[in-house]
C-alpha cells in the first residue's frame, strides 16, 4: 500500500546526511577556496573518493556493481553536491556510469556536450581534464577559453556531433536542477547568516524588512523549486522535469543575486563565496535544458493537454 507522500524515508534521510557529512569533511570551505586558488583544476583523488562512496554508480544496478538506487535518491545526493559547490562534470560522469569505463568508480572524468542547447554551442566544460565525452566516439580537441566560473574551465571546440547527449537530456536536466536547488538553499542560509551577523544603524541588518523580505522570497523560490525537483524525480515525466529545471535555474540564479545584494560590498568581493554560487548557477542554467527550451516544451505540453 502506497500513498501520496513527500516525506523522505529513513534510508533517504540517512543517505542525505551521509553525503552532507562526507562533503563537509572532504570539501569544506578551505578545500573550496583552495580549488579556486588552484585555477579550477579537478581533484582526481576526491573524484575517486566520490566514486568509492557510490556517487557515480548510485543508480547502476547492484548486479553491475552499482548501488541500485533511483532518481529520488540521486536528486537528494546532487542537492548536497550543489549545496557544497562541488566542482567537476558530476552529472555527466554519473550518467556515464556503466557506459564509459571508469566512470562508475570515479577513475575516469566524463564531460558532456551539455552547454548551449540542441542547435550546438561550441563550449565544453572540463574538457581539458576529461577522459571521455558522453556519447562521443572520441575526445575532441579544443582551445581553452577564460571562464566566468573559476571552477568550471571552458574549452571551445570546432564542432560537436549532432544531439550527442540527447538520450541523457531529461536525466541530465533533472540532476542539474537538483544541483541548482542545493545552491538555492545554501544561498538562503548564507544570506540569513550574514543578515544576523552584520550590524548597521545599531541592529542586525536582518531585522530590517527590506532585507527580511528578500530572504523570505529566496526561501519561497527554493522551496517551490525543490518540490518540483522531488516530484519530477518520482514521476520522471519530461514536462515535469523541464518545469523543475526551469524553476530550479530561476531559484539558483535569483537567490545568488539576492544573497549578493544582502552581503552589500562584501558580496562584490572575490573573498566572499557568493559569487561562486552565482557563477555556477549561471553555468548550470545553460546546461542540458535552458529556460527558453524548457518554456517552449512546457507550452507545447500545456497546449496538447488543453486541446
Amino acid at each position: 500500500m502506497r500513498a501520496v507522500d513527500f516525506r523522505l524515508t529513513d534510508d533517504q534521510r540517512d543517505l542525505r546526511t551521509g553525503v552532507r557529512d562526507l562533503l563537509a569533511g572532504r570539501y569544506g570551505r578551505e578545500a573550496l577556496r583552495a580549488s579556486v586558488d588552484a585555477g579550477g583544476t579537478l581533484d582526481r583523488r576526491l573524484w575517486r573518493e566520490l566514486g568509492e562512496a557510490g556517487f557515480f554508480a548510485l543508480r547502476l544496478p547492484q548486479e553491475r556493481g552499482g548501488v541500485g538506487l533511483g532518481l529520488p535518491e540521486a536528486v537528494l545526493v546532487f542537492e548536497e553536491a550543489g549545496r557544497a559547490l562541488l566542482p567537476g562534470p558530476l552529472v555527466a560522469t554519473h550518467l556515464a556510469a556503466g557506459a564509459v569505463p571508469g566512470a562508475a568508480e570515479g577513475t575516469a572524468v566524463v564531460t558532456a556536450f551539455d552547454l548551449g542547447g540542441p542547435g550546438g554551442g561550441t563550449l565544453v566544460a572540463h574538457l581539458g581534464e576529461a577522459d571521455a565525452v558522453l556519447g562521443a566516439p572520441s575526445l575532441p580537441t579544443g582551445e581553452p577559453v577564460p571562464s566566468a566560473d573559476p571552477l568550471t574551465p571552458l574549452h571551445r571546440v570546432a564542432s560537436r556531433p549532432p544531439a550527442a547527449s540527447g538520450a541523457y537530456r531529461d536525466e541530465g536536466a533533472l540532476l542539474t536542477a537538483a544541483l541548482q536547488v542545493g545552491g538555492a538553499l545554501r544561498t538562503v542560509e548564507l544570506a540569513v547568516r550574514y543578515g544576523r551577523e552584520r550590524e548597521q544603524f545599531g541592529q542586525p541588518i536582518g531585522a530590517f524588512q527590506a532585507v527580511k523580505h528578500l530572504c523570505a522570497q529566496m526561501l519561497v523560490r527554493a522551496e517551490v523549486a525543490r518540490t518540483a525537483v522531488y516530484a519530477a524525480a518520482v514521476t520522471a515525466d519530461p514536462a515535469e522535469v523541464a518545469g523543475a529545471k526551469l524553476l530550479a535555474d530561476g531559484a539558483a540564479v535569483r537567490n545568488a543575486r539576492d544573497c549578493l545584494q544582502v552581503h552589500g560590498g562584501m558580496g562584490f568581493t572575490w573573498e566572499a563565496d557568493v559569487h561562486l554560487h552565482l557563477k555556477r548557477a549561471w553555468v548550470r542554467a545553460e546546461q542540458w535544458r535552458t529556460a527558453g527550451e524548457a518554456e517552449e516544451l512546457l507550452a507545447a505540453e500545456l497546449a496538447s493537454a488543453a486541446m
Binding site: 517551490v224 518540483a228 518545469g243 524553476l247 517552449e296 507550452a299 500545456l302
Partner: peptide, 13 residues
C-alpha cells in the same frame, strides 16, 4: 507562449 509555459511549470509545482 513562453510565459504560458512558465505558468504551466509554476502551477504544476
Amino acid at each position: 507562449r513562453r510565459r504560458l509555459g512558465r505558468l504551466y511549470a509554476e502551477f504544476g509545482a
